[in-house]
């Protein structure tokens, strides 16, 4: 199986990336090759196999409900590309 240009464009939008026409072509090829390689997986019957989400059987890791210190407003915004009135600023979004 290979990847179509439409697939690439759809996924790019989901990932909030944009590519030139040439890049789309190249990605369709490169990702297609990786996916073709991954096709080996489909040869393996895993219908009765449980997925492993965590390699170690750790469970129930909780935190106590206790307040600890926060960043100041200045610290929180220190790395922001744009800010105003103590807030991060983005282009206008509709409500």
């Amino acid at each position: 199986m290979s990847l179509t240009r439409e697939d690439v464009t759809y996924v790019a939008n989901l990932a909030r990336l944009e590519f030139s026409e040439d890049e789309v072509t190249a990605l369709a090829d490169q990702l297609g090759a990786v996916l073709d390689y991954a096709e080996t997986l489909s040869g393996l019957d895993t219908s009765h196999i449980k997925a492993t989400e965590h390699v170690l059987a750790v469970q129930n890791v909780f935190r106590e409900d206790e307040i600890k210190s926060c960043l100041t407003n200045e610290e929180a915004l220190a790395n922001a590309p744009e800010s105003e009135a103590g807030c991060f600023k983005v282009p206008r979004v509709m409500e």
């Binding site: 790019a12 393996l44 895993t46 997925a51």
Partner: peptide, 28 residues
């Protein structure tokens, strides 16, 4: 490239074939 590959593997219709399959292979 990796973001594209990963987004594709998780996207609707491909999750079972790629991501879930890979997590099962992990068990194996």
């Amino acid at each position: 490239r990796r973001i594209m590959l990963g987004t594709y593997a998780l996207s609707s219709g491909y999750y079972d074939a790629y991501y879930k399959k890979a997590m099962q292979v992990r068990t194996i």
